[in-house]
Computed example of a mutant assay.
Amino acid sequence: MDRSWPRLDGVRRIAVLRPNAVGDFVFALPALHALKRTYPDAELVFIGRAWHRAFLAGRPGPVDRVAEMPALPGVGVPPDAPADAHAIALFIERMRGERFDLALQMFGGGLYSNPFLMQLQARLTVGMRAPDAPALDRWLPYREPINRRLALLEIAGLAGAWPGPLPMPELAVTAIDRAKAAQALPPGAGERLVILQPGATDPRRCWPPERFAALGDMLAAEGAQIAINGAPAEAALVQAVAGGMRHRAVVLSGTPESGGLDLGGLCGLLERAALVVSNDTGPLHLALALGVPSVGIFWLTNLLEGMPLRPSGLWAALSVRTRCPVCGQDNLAQRCAHDVSFVDEVSVDEVAGLARAALAASAA
């Protein structure tokens, strides 16, 4: 299969389908930048979720506009989720009226997403294809595990886009972001801010909270200001870390109205950080996109999938456990029913050593 595709002429509007979570959006940034660099005069429309629309509104970058799609079974929600057929039909009709020149499927193997993309009737459709998915005009075979950023860049290549120098930061921080961060945590002279991120959507990727607490105490004793961040649903976890520390830590786990941070405010705070220590979750990848030195605690294949294109900013602690400590089932091919940590074999001393190395490198 010839994979050297020329730039398409007369491109005025590009659709990118990727309605998923924060880390997944960050993985797409190199591909989005490549598309915008190749087609600078085209409008890039990101088909995503409500949080994409709120987060990207007014934010400089490769995305010009977000089209918030309704819940579509198999595309952003489970295949058996209820669907509003009328809302889906209206959205497809509206997107078809945009007369896209390029439409890129950047959401999985395409069993559900490829038929949706094809209904937009773009001049050219590209993306990945699992064996059971319909073919787009240009496609690549879908495989796992794989580096997500590189895979999405390869999809952009099917549309004639190839990367030049990756900007740093990859993601713009706005004055509004900085103001929100300052309201939640006023900046101090000479602050040496370390942000701990103890949550993750998959409990198997969560380092135990008592180890985050022990690490926080070590770094606080060495002069760092510790902030513990989490989504509102992770408030109990954040409090467990803070409650397990002897030193004072700033807790940032509520809604913006209760002193927490929205996603933009988190970017404003991450920009000020000397270090982020995190499980493999969205805020870690935001920090890496912003060029913040980061220690990531990874479970095996997640490191391959989430490795940034600039690996010098990441200090990775890796657990190679594959079998559930409760039932013994191998979780590489199929997940068992137990929500236990698969990264608890990573020691506090290992993460502390990586954290000190990252802080020393950023101060050099």
Rank of each mutant, 00 (worst) to 15 (best):
Gly259Gln: 07
Val251Asp: 00
Ala220Cys: 11
Ala274Cys: 12
Leu286Val: 14
Glu222Arg: 15
Ser258Glu: 15
Asp217Gly: 08
Pro232Ala: 07
Asn279Met: 05
Arg272Phe: 10
Ala289Thr: 11
Ile228Val: 15
Arg204Gly: 00
Pro209His: 01
Met245Val: 11
Ala235Trp: 07
Met307Phe: 00
Gly268Ile: 15
Leu290Arg: 02
Leu314Trp: 05
Val295Glu: 10
Leu270Trp: 12
Asp217Ile: 10
Gly260Trp: 05
Gln239Trp: 00
Ala233Asp: 06
Pro283Gly: 07
Ala249Leu: 08
Pro203Ala: 01
Leu314Thr: 06
Thr281Val: 14
Glu305Cys: 12
Asp280Glu: 13
Glu222Trp: 05
Trp315Ile: 03
Gly254Phe: 08
Ala249Arg: 03
Val250Leu: 03
Trp315Asp: 06
Leu318Ser: 00
Ile228Pro: 03
Ala236Gln: 14
Gln239Phe: 00
Ala214Ile: 02
Ala317Gly: 05
Glu222Gly: 12
Pro203Val: 03
Asp262Lys: 08
Ala289Pro: 07
Leu300Tyr: 13
Ala220Phe: 08
Gly296Asp: 03
Leu303Val: 02
Pro203His: 04
Ala235Asp: 14
Ala273Gln: 09
Leu290Ala: 12
Ser312Tyr: 09
Pro208Asn: 05
His247Gln: 15
Ala220Lys: 12
Cys267Lys: 14
Ile297Gln: 02
Trp315Ala: 11
Glu234Gln: 10
